[in-house]
């Protein structure tokens, strides 16, 4: 389970993983929604780096384009739009739910961790081919073996676009 020796790769992972974990905590701990969003941006950015360390370079860059570049900008846009309209709306008050939620989360963490101890033995190793994440390989698989799911996802995206336009229109 634990690594035998400390390698440079492990140190890099520790740094990136630490930033990602702290940023994830920041998302739920900052009362201010913009700061939460910023933490999430940082988290996604570091995750892209982790994807690179796993060898999935296309997905790493797609992560930056899709998540930090588009989705989080959209989030910030909406937060700021609501902030402009009603600055006091987005502040939160304390609640009984909070400690309960934390306890439940910790319980879930412990349960899954106990399962993982059994499930992941030592025999897992980085055994994929070195080029398994390059655009060529991913594209070839995506457009042959996974062509049908890809089309379905395309339809889903179109439906999403039409739906969000309908939601945003004041009068149809």
């Amino acid at each position: 389970m634990l690594p035998e020796q400390i390698t440079p790769g492990l140190l890099v992972f520790a740094a990136m993983g630490g930033i990602a974990a702290l940023a994830a905590l920041g998302v739920i701990l900052f009362p201010n929604a913009v700061r939460s969003a910023l933490c999430l941006v940082l988290n996604f950015f570091v995750l892209a780096g982790l994807y690179f360390t796993l060898g999935a370079e296309l997905l790493g860059i797609t992560q930056i384009v899709v998540y930090t570049g588009a989705i989080m900008v959209l989030f910030l846009f909406v937060i700021m739009l609501l902030n402009l309209a009603a600055p006091q709306q987005l502040n939160e008050k304390g609640d009984i739910k909070k400690p309960l939620g934390v306890v439940m989360g910790l319980g879930m963490l412990a349960l899954i961790l106990a399962q993982l101890q059994v499930a992941i033995g030592k025999d897992f190793g980085p055994r994929s081919e070195a080029n398994f994440g390059t655009p060529e390989v991913v594209g070839r698989t995506l457009f042959t073996l996974y062509a049908f799911p890809l089309e379905i996802v395309g339809i889903l995206l179109v439906v999403g676009i039409v739906g969000s336009i309908l939601l945003a229109k004041r009068k149809i």
Binding site: L58, V65, T68
Partner: peptide, 21 residues
């Protein structure tokens, strides 16, 4: 980088954060 154009698009989309923040 192998994914030069995608990298360019990805990073250029981060430029807006400075302005928005």
């Amino acid at each position: 980088v192998n994914i030069g154009i995608l990298y360019m698009l990805a990073i250029s989309s981060l430029g807006v954060y400075g302005v928005v923040l």
